[in-house]
């Protein structure tokens, strides 16, 4: 017997078991992805309203708010959103590749961008980059690129909550205000569809109008907002209670929260869909393997029977 049919049988069994697991993981990831996408859409109306309000309030006068302040950039904080677990295809690899490319051109990363796209290059001197990681895999990135890792959030779970986002955004806002960092960017995976995800970088602080616009135009589904009443009345005629600055104090941190929340959700959706696709491929590969093994098993079995017949025939011929 060329190949032991028993060995092949055990092999088929183990591949079948693996396939069951990958299939289950595929379905679970699909459900989790849907949940994350839903939450993204739910947060959209809130983000739209908050952004419109901020835009109109800033018509009043050039806002002199600490979170708008564009300082010469010396130190950048990079929020890197990765996953906690593996088995999600190239999801983490893509984030890290993109991050590495950004690090090669720190000057560009440090430049401030105006509303119409012109950029102000940073001052001379070295630019320092530190990492705030989300998901366990982000630690590997910081280590590989020799960056200071200030914190890792690794208990966000599969569907991030707005409270997690608030916690993170408060943390970084505080660090920006005290001048520890002159710029905060977030690196996340934009969820275009379950098949295409691209890694993107977005500036969180200082708050820039262009960045908030991007947040709103890049939502996966635009018709979710519904109709909002148009508002053409000049903002000067509005009653502002208690004051414009007090309102800024509430609206701007909320916008940052929503931006972080959005990045978390999109990354979660991307992670789950990357895992879903990876698991789908694994299930398909397992099916192919089972087919090939079954063929080999049948051949081996047939060979064994043929050999036995040949032996019997040989034995009978010897008796005559």
């Amino acid at each position: 017997m060329a190949v032991s049919s028993k060995a092949i049988k055990t092999r088929i069994k183990s591949v079948k078991n693996t396939k069951k697991i990958t299939k289950a993981m595929e379905l679970v990831s699909a459900a989790k992805m849907r949940k994350a996408v839903d939450a993204t859409l739910q947060a959209r109306l809130y983000a739209t309203l908050a952004q419109q309000l901020m835009e109109r309030l800033s018509e009043l006068q050039e806002p002199n708010y600490p979170l708008f302040e564009q300082r010469p950039v010396k130190k950048i904080l990079m929020i890197l959103i990765s996953s906690n677990r593996g088995l999600c295809g190239s999801f983490n690899g893509n984030v890290m590749k993109f991050g590495k490319r950004l690090l090669e051109d720190k000057k560009n990363l440090a430049a401030h961008r105006g509303p119409d796209g012109q950029s102000t290059p940073p001052g001379a001197g070295d630019i320092d980059v530190e990492v705030l990681g989300i998901g366990r895999k982000s630690a590997a990135f910081a280590k590989k690129n020799d960056l200071e890792l200030i914190e890792v959030y690794d208990s966000l779970g599969d569907s991030p909550d707005i409270d997690d986002a608030i916690h993170i955004s408060k943390n970084v806002t505080e660090k920006f205000k005290t001048g520890t960092y002159d710029k905060v960017v977030v690196l996340f995976t934009h969820f275009a569809s379950s098949l295409t995800q691209t890694v993107k970088v977005r500036q969180l602080l200082p708050v820039a109008k262009a960045e908030v616009d991007k947040l709103l135009t890049e939502f996966p589904n635009k018709d979710h907002i519904g109709e909002l009443a148009p508002d053409n009345r000049p903002i000067e005629t509005y009653f502002l209670e208690p004051s414009r600055d007090a309102i800024f104090d509430i609206v701007i941190p909320r916008l940052i929260d929503v931006q972080v929340y959005q990045a978390l959700l999109e990354s979660a959706a991307s992670e789950h869909s990357a895992r879903m696709v990876a698991m789908k491929n694994a299930s398909e590969a397992a099916s192919e393997m089972i087919d090939a093994l079954t063929l080999a098993f049948n051949k081996a079995r047939q060979a064994a029977i043929t050999q036995e017949i040949a032996e019997i025939a040989g034995g009978a011929a010897a008796l005559e």
Binding site: L53, L57, F239, L240, E241, P242, A246, I247
Partner: peptide, 19 residues
Amino acid sequence: PTLAGALTILDQHAPIVSV
């Protein structure tokens, strides 16, 4: 409920932004 106390809004209220 606003920071300045409870506010009842009827139709055609003047534009306002409040905390």
